[in-house]
Amino acid sequence: MQGTRRLKIDNRIHLDNKVQERNLSGIAIEALQSHSKRSKKHMSMKQHKKCGSLDLPKDLCKFEKFKPMHEMWKNYITELIKSVGTSQMAQCLLGADLHGAHILVADCKMAAFKGVSGIMIRETAETFGIITKDDKFKVVLKKISVFMLQVDCWKITLHGDKLTSRKVGQ
């Protein structure tokens, strides 16, 4: 027992396969170090906006670049409706891919988005990204909006709160 005071015990464990640190931006590191459960895995909307991850590059903000996508969508939706028939069209459209659809924001609780129309090019769980004819990219919340689109001779109204529960492409 004598001399045990001088003995130092090393409690560290050395691993041969050390995990390499990820290269993250300062904003991503702040998000991961935050105390909330969501922030440990995801950045907040404020952080996304600050680092520009939600912005569309300026060279892609051209309505003309997305016209072929709209033509492809028209062919896709026409074939989809023909295969399903008009009796199940409503259910079919709720599950259909809307990338390339020409969408009009018929009603929105945010007055700035009311009347926005263009080709839908980005969809998230809660938003639609729309490129307008004047080459502007607008992100519209689904939950507070009502959208209209036209398929052949049908004018279709989609309530955004019904669209928020559907699965977005992976």
Score class of each variant (00 low, 15 high):
Met1Asp: 14
Thr4His: 13
Thr4Met: 12
Thr4Phe: 12
Lys8Thr: 13
Ile13Glu: 15
Leu15Thr: 11
Asp16Tyr: 11
Lys18Glu: 15
Gln20Lys: 15
Glu21His: 14
Leu24Pro: 01
Leu24Val: 04
Ser25Phe: 01
Ser25Tyr: 05
Ala28Lys: 13
Arg38Ile: 00
Met43Tyr: 04
Met45Tyr: 02
Gln47Asn: 03
His48Asn: 11
Leu54Ser: 11
Leu56Ser: 05
Pro57Val: 08
Lys58Leu: 15
Lys58Phe: 11
Cys61Arg: 15
Phe63Ser: 01
Met69Leu: 15
Met69Arg: 09
Glu71Ala: 14
Trp73Cys: 02
Thr78Lys: 12
Leu80Gln: 06
Leu80Lys: 04
Ile81Pro: 00
Lys82Cys: 09
Ser83Pro: 00
Ser83Arg: 15
Gly85Asn: 09
Ser87Asn: 10
Gln88Pro: 00
Gln88Phe: 06
Gln91Tyr: 10
Gln91Trp: 04
Leu98Tyr: 05
Ala101Ile: 05
His102Glu: 15
His102Met: 13
Lys109Asn: 12
Gly118Phe: 02
Arg122Ser: 13
Ala125Asn: 08
Ala125Gln: 10
Glu126His: 07
Gly129Glu: 03
Gly129Ala: 07
Asp135Arg: 02
Lys136Val: 08
Phe137Glu: 03
Val140Cys: 08
Lys142Tyr: 01
Lys142Cys: 07
Lys143Leu: 10
Ile144Ser: 08
Phe147Leu: 05
Leu149Asp: 01
Gln150Ile: 07
Val151Arg: 02
Cys153Asn: 14
Cys153Ala: 13
Ile156Thr: 07
Thr157Gln: 10
His159Tyr: 12
Val168Asp: 02
Gln170Asp: 15
